[in-house]
């Protein structure tokens, strides 16, 4: 078995592009679900409209990079408002149904034949990230020590990505310590009580939906820029479910829960993948073909999550007392 490769890919996964973009998506979900109690199952759509907003503005319309970012952010805000207006006055379950449907609608529009000229069908769009790499302060080359090294492009993406994660965590920390965050947490507990105390619940839910959507949409930018392309199927429902898994893994309603959850999630996936394929290649495991390793790692990670929920339902950072109260 090639231990060096297994270890290096695993360590790199801890801070890699996937970790960053899922951390951002999960921070958004954490604001929705962890703090406000909104069941948003359409986080992938927020990432999608941002990624495609950037891609279409730059690649199709030929406008500058910064304008693309603004269009992407605006698209996420608009999506939040469009989803929120009809559903936020209703019970929580309706938001879940509508968001999961909306996310699929958004994905299907992106990959539809009718809009192939704009969104590029199932191939997606590419060639819109030059403006981002033009800002790269690192000269061409490889940075790092031994196997722990990245090329200048990846380093730039990771630096920007982790700064975004840091800023997002900072904002969440400040907000959730404030009276604003208190209203959100109170809404999670009981909307009517909050209403009876003179707070405009609808407005706060909308603010929460927009904030979480905008932070999640940063993940869409990171994906588009890191891989210099967007494809519709990247923004499918499983992306949202991974983000939920990460939030629960890290501990809901904890500032760093999504970040650490994302690191653990990707480290586990990559490590299990490396170990299994290494074992299959070197003939230690004979009952599995290399192709089967991919699905099996998800089975094993899923099993791990079930065990986590059984033995540590509050997640890594959660407070056991809170879980006990939840069983009212």
């Amino acid at each position: 078995m090639d231990w060096i490769t297994i270890i290096s890919t695993t360590v790199k996964a801890a801070i890699g592009v996937e970790t960053v973009l899922y951390a951002l998506a999960a921070i958004g979900i954490n604001i929705h679900f962890g703090y406000t109690g909104l069941l948003n199952f359409g986080q992938a759509a927020f990432m999608g409209v941002a990624g495609y907003g950037l891609a279409v503005t730059v690649a199709v319309m030929g406008l500058p990079f910064w304008l693309g970012i603004i269009v992407g952010l605006a698209a996420a805000v608009v999506l939040a408002i469009v989803l929120g207006i009809p559903t936020l006055r209703l019970r929580a379950d309706y938001l879940a149904i509508v968001t999961i449907a909306a996310a699929e609608i958004v994905r299907l529009i992106f990959r539809s034949v009718a809009f192939k000229d704009i969104f590029g069908g199932s191939d997606g769009q590419r060639g819109f990230s030059d403006g981002f790499y033009a800002l790269n302060p690192f000269p061409e080359g490889t940075y790092g020590i031994g196997w722990f090294s990245f090329n200048h492009r990846l380093l730039w993406v990771l630096l920007v990505g982790w700064i975004l994660v840091g800023i997002s965590c900072g904002i969440v920390y400040l907000l959730m310590k404030s009276p604003w965050g208190r209203v959100l947490k109170a809404i999670r507990e009981d909307e009517d009580a909050v209403r009876s105390l003179g707070k405009n619940v609808f407005s706060y839910k909308m603010q929460s939906l927009i904030l979480g959507g905008v932070i999640g949409c940063l993940g869409g930018f990171v994906y588009g820029l890191a891989f210099a392309s967007v494809q519709p199927d990247i923004f499918g429902t499983e992306t949202t479910f991974f983000a939920y898994t990460i939030v629960i893994l890290g501990g809901a309603a904890r500032v760093f829960g999504p970040v650490v959850g994302s690191m653990i999630f990707w480290v586990l996936l990559v490590l299990v993948n490396g170990l299994l394929s290494g074992a299959v290649e070197s003939g230690i495991i004979t009952f599995m073909s290399p192709v089967q390793v991919g699905p099996v790692r998800f089975i094993l990670v899923g099993l791990g999550l079930i065990l986590l929920l059984v033995y540590r339902p509050q997640g890594i950072f959660g407070d056991k007392r809170e879980i006990a109260i939840d069983a009212r």
């Binding site: 404030s178 965050g181 208190r182």
Partner: peptide, 29 residues
């Protein structure tokens, strides 16, 4: 009774106060 279970007693009380500046998104930051 609608006690906000996973908020402390003190936070429950603070929530009741009106016209809180920190309940505005931007000022909360």
């Amino acid at each position: 009774t609608k006690a906000l279970s996973r908020l402390t007693v003190m936070e429950n009380m603070r929530l009741g106060a009106q016209q809180q500046r920190g309940e505005n998104f931007w000022r909360a930051l």
